[in-house]
Design a protein around this nucleic acid. Structure first.
Lengths: 200, 200
DNA sequence: AAATAAATTGAACGATTATTCAATTTATTT
DNA sequence: AAATAAATTGAATAATCGTTCAATTTATTT
């Protein structure tokens, strides 16, 4: 009885608004009131769906981290060929599309919370490990296919993501487009080198 | 005439208090009032020395970034031997001391501001480039000494710091002491590998 | 001691914050 | 149409925020 629940819909709507706000003004300046105003609802409605602001931040973190899994979404036209798939994933990672798909600014905002919030810390640790094991699986597939020669796939996947995270830590500070492009290519070659793949 | 200026002393004292506060509660919860209370002064005195909170954050950023240069401070007993010096620096970087000397939490806090504040962005970019060129100089010295064989010192220094930044991005999430120790050693070996140095 | 300038205080400002609670609106059921 | 339950509003809360300004204290000079 009663009316049907809008919980899921509203929660997603609120999180997206909160994200957009954090993106524009920084997480430290994203308030419940501003979030509510952005989608023309009452601030108390936000509290109604997310008991506290803390829970909204948790939802934001999940919203952001989920996006990073998209780098493994590859069009299914790559049928059968594991190496093709791996190279496409690496293209996804080391491309100018990165900055349009993901918003590192809000991610670093949430990341900085991990030092004082174990819940967020676990979410991040979990994502980073998931990304690593996904890449490892791709490498293993290539090994089985015979298209790749790698001693320790888990180790290699780990190192590659260390390179990725370190690369974007620096690249986020680079404003010069040419320097950005040049460095990005360079870091990609380093990743390929870890896979014993020659660079063209 | 008049009394002698306490500007420098007070400013440093305030910045240190602000830092301690940010370390404990996060930069987003570090206020001028709390900072003043921590050192038993009036909040308006903080404003007196740092026109606005923004300027205090700038000072905090500089305070933090300066600390990272300490990794190149090596006891002068390493006279003449450039390779020894380089290895000591790498020991400084890949050691458990890192977390005690530096506070990555506040640093990530400030780093996340770079996306919306060009002043802080420049400070970070400048530091990262300084760290790289310092390491490059060490590598060059080793080359001239004949104790190291590296094609492109600038490139190698860059890659090594990419590894470092990516390494601590992951390591900051690792709570298990054994896992931490293991990974740290692993990442160090990767850095040494970039220098064509065999790992023991 | 008088003059000077910086250090420091204290009160007040308006704005915004997260959260509460009761009241009301709205949709879906019987 | 009556009953039900969730959605939504609106007002009020106490707390904290950064900042301004005038007044006062303090140290150092002439």
């Amino acid at each position: 009885m009663g009316r049907k629940s809008l919980k899921d819909t509203r929660q997603k709507e609120i999180v997206r608004a909160f994200y957009q706000l954090a993106k524009k003004e920084g997480l430290e300046n994203a308030s419940l009131a501003k979030t509510a105003a952005l989608i023309n609802i009452n601030p108390s409605l936000v509290i109604h769906y997310f008991k506290t602001k803390e829970h909204l931040v948790y939802a934001l973190t999940e919203y952001i981290l989920d996006k990073y899994l998209l780098i493994f979404k590859v069009p299914p036209r790559h049928s059968g060929n594991a190496l093709d798939k791996l190279l496409t994933v690496l293209d996804n990672i080391f491309s100018n599309k990165w900055n349009t798909l993901f918003d590192d600014s809000v991610s670093y905002n949430c990341y900085s919370l991990t030092f004082r919030n174990s819940t967020i810390k676990k979410k991040y640790k979990n994502l980073l490990d998931t990304l690593r094991s996904n890449l490892e699986a791709l490498i293993v597939a290539c090994k089985e296919e015979g298209s790749l020669s790698v001693k320790d796939p888990a180790l290699t996947a780990d190192i590659i993501f260390v390179l990725i995270d370190g690369a974007y830590y620096y690249l986020s500070l680079v404003t010069n487009k040419n320097e950005y492009r040049k460095k990005l290519l360079l870091y990609k070659q380093q990743a390929l080198q870890q896979l014993n793949l020659a660079s063209s």
